[in-house]
Design a protein around this nucleic acid. Structure first.
Lengths: 226, 226
DNA sequence: CGACTGCTTGATGTTGCTCAACGTGCGTGG
DNA sequence: CCACGCACGTTGAGCAACATCAAGCAGTCG
């Protein structure tokens, strides 16, 4: 594997910015860059964690096979590391990661990555901050899913896409109704019903996967109040 | 603050074991040890994160004020760090931590802790592993809460106490019915009903908070199948 | 054109929350 | 000391929210 452009890559992670020229050469020699199309699996649940994945561009869903049905834990936008917790918490992946848009991923050899942590405190500190922020997001998710009811969850998810992913109140949903249901923890029928409901109430304008948020304040209220 | 015994403490964290004598002196001079009784608040949600908390002994619940009712995110047994994610993800605590048994906590000055990470790669690596393991546990929780129904959740919680906390099928529940409900995300009435149900079915023997698991395999099955 | 996938809609059944009542033990203040 | 409020626990009845089941529709691909 070889990826000699790390040194000149301009989408470095916060952590990689702390590496010096020599370390960046090592990184380049121990990583490889791969392209994924929508639906292609980047990381497979149960497989051994042989490398660290860094998403350079694109959009990825983190998901898991639940006891009953699938569950999407998170949607991650580049730039971000994927599943660091799995890498350092265990030696198999606890989740799968699948591209939902065209995505570029750098796979970094685990040993190399670990060495950086051991030898470069600034690098380690950035990784810890990253993990911390990620975990906070996930906890936030947990609360929502635990106590809100369906309309609130869907509202939450839509606002997430608008704010966090696209930065606009008009966007094309990158996931199917089924996937949205897996993300919010409801059935696809319920998701569908809530969509038509929001459409009728003129809170959203929906044309297939094209969504425009018309009454953001109301949607926010629904999201907050459960 | 002063706690000169760090050097000779025999309940050091995995991370602290990586510190040298000199660093342990610094740790001692920048940390303090505090005792908490059941119900006493160790970390308060929304308060600034001024120090890192290390639980030396005892049992702690991590909880949060939800939009509708409280939610217990996790029950943590010593030895463990508390809420590292809050410390590094943001500068206010996103959760509260409350002792549920007599608990000893060491508060370590954040700056000191950060310096260790920057300067001692082995220390940093242990912290990262800790965070990784913790996050995996939490994700596991999320899945359960998302898809199981009430009986399964209660079964899960009981097995958690038996396996992870007490290592025995007979134990005294350290939490009230209300708290168990907050942990599993159900109402206290539902919790109560399920308890009497399990008692009638002879899956458990219940006397107030004293619990004996009689049919572990059945309970496990209920827990797994939702 | 038929098979298939993704989406929608309606009818039905179940789960679990809410509300309400009642018992108990504990601490507080008259 | 007793009355009272308060947290905890249990049980029952009714209801709303959702999942499930079932059917139908539009678009697409071989």
């Amino acid at each position: 594997m070889s990826n000699p452009v790390c040194k000149f890559c301009n989408i470095k992670s916060q952590a990689a910015l702390k590496l010096n020229g020599c370390e960046l050469d090592v990184l380049g020699n121990n990583s490889s860059q791969v392209q994924f199309g929508p639906g292609e699996i980047i990381i497979k649940q149960e497989a051994p964690t042989s490398s660290v994945a860094y998403v350079k561009s694109g959009l990825v869903k983190i998901h898991i096979k639940g006891p009953i049905r699938g569950k999407i834990l998170n949607i991650v936008k580049a730039p971000a590391y994927l599943c660091l917790h799995s890498t350092f918490g265990d030696n198999v992946n606890h989740f799968s990661a699948t591209a939902i848009e065209k995505t570029t991923v750098c796979f970094i050899d685990s040993i190399t990555f670990r060495n950086f942590i051991h030898e470069n405190g600034d690098f380690a500190y950035q990784i810890i901050q990253d993990m911390g922020k990620g975990e906070l997001r996930n906890f936030h998710n947990l609360i929502n899913n635990a106590q809100k009811q369906n309309m609130g969850r869907v509202a939450e998810a839509l606002l997430f896409f608008a704010k966090e992913i696209y930065g606009s109140n008009s966007f094309t949903l990158p996931v199917s109704r089924q996937e949205l249901a897996d993300l919010t923890g409801i059935t696809r029928e319920s998701a569908s019903r809530i969509f038509t409901n929001f459409n009728n109430e003129k809170i959203l304008k929906i044309e297939g996967r094209k969504i425009s948020i018309l009454k953001e304040s109301l949607l926010t209220q629904i999201s907050v109040n459960g």
